[in-house]
């Protein structure tokens, strides 16, 4: 511990206040990513079910939404939602301004809608890949559409979606680095501040990268545990 304190005292860049700055940034990153993933997940379930519908009036609007949000860069979506809305006449005096005044909610909206689009497509894929035999068996038991969805299709689909979804979580974590471009102090934003103070790019960004790596590793670990528990029946013996 004493050697650690001595080490912190010696260097000019990673002072105590700089480390606090990084910590604040990391808390913001984790919070932002967690909340947008949660929002994305909640949105994606009904959207994915709509997306598998045979009715084009239900299917196509969702297809259009995922097409737009998967087809454009997240940075542009964030700029449109953060800077774009200020150009709407009178928005500053409307009730919506509570949401759009600061950078946090626009960022959350952009990230949430983006990850919802990707998650919708992941879920659509696994729902459509549900074994035909399981569905036939459910029908033979006399289950209706809703009961079949709830008891047979969704539980099995969610399990099979875990490996693909863990990728989406990691992409979202790394994508969140652009929050720093709209004044949010996230992990990258903290690194940018330290970088600009010392005119040296390598150590501040390397340190941030190491923290991202640690976060990514934690995510991988959690999903590995989940896969071991929930996908045990699909693993090769």
């Amino acid at each position: 511990m004493e050697t650690l304190i001595a080490l912190i005292d010696q260097n000019e860049i990673f002072t105590f206040s700089a480390l606090v700055h990084y910590w604040d940034g990391m808390v913001n990153t984790v919070q932002l990513v967690f909340l947008s993933l949660l929002a994305g997940l909640i949105l994606a379930v009904p959207l994915a079910i709509m997306r598998t519908s045979k009715n084009p009036f239900i299917n196509y609007p969702v297809w259009f939404y995922t097409y737009i949000f998967r087809g454009t860069p997240l940075l542009i979506q964030l700029y449109m939602i953060y800077y774009g809305v200020t150009l709407i006449d009178g928005i500053q005096d409307s009730v919506w301004w509570v949401i759009f005044e600061h950078a946090y909610y626009p960022c959350l909206i952009a990230f949430g809608l983006n990850t919802a689009a990707y998650t919708t497509e992941i879920f659509r894929g696994v729902i459509e890949a549900t074994d035909q035999g399981e569905i036939e068996a459910a029908k033979a038991y006399g289950m209706g559409w809703a009961k079949r969805m709830r008891r047979i299709i969704l539980p099995s689909a969610f399990r099979r979606a875990i490996p693909a979804y863990s990728n989406e979580v990691i992409f979202m974590l790394h994508g969140s680095a652009i929050a720093s471009t709209v004044t949010i102090l996230d992990l990258t934003g903290a690194a940018r501040d330290i970088y600009a103070q010392h005119y040296t790019a390598f150590p501040p960004f390397m340190f941030a990268a190491a923290l991202y790596l640690a976060l990514t590793f934690t995510i991988i670990l959690i999903f590995k545990q989940l896969e071991n528990r929930l996908l045990a029946h699909l693993q090769p013996r």
Binding site: T86, L87, Q92, W97, T181, T183, G189
Partner: peptide, 18 residues
């Protein structure tokens, strides 16, 4: 303190009422 990378972004937010 709201920190910006470029003065242009800062101006947009000032004019946007943020």
């Amino acid at each position: 303190v709201v920190r910006y990378t470029s003065a242009d972004d800062m101006r947009v937010d000032l004019e946007g009422g943020r």
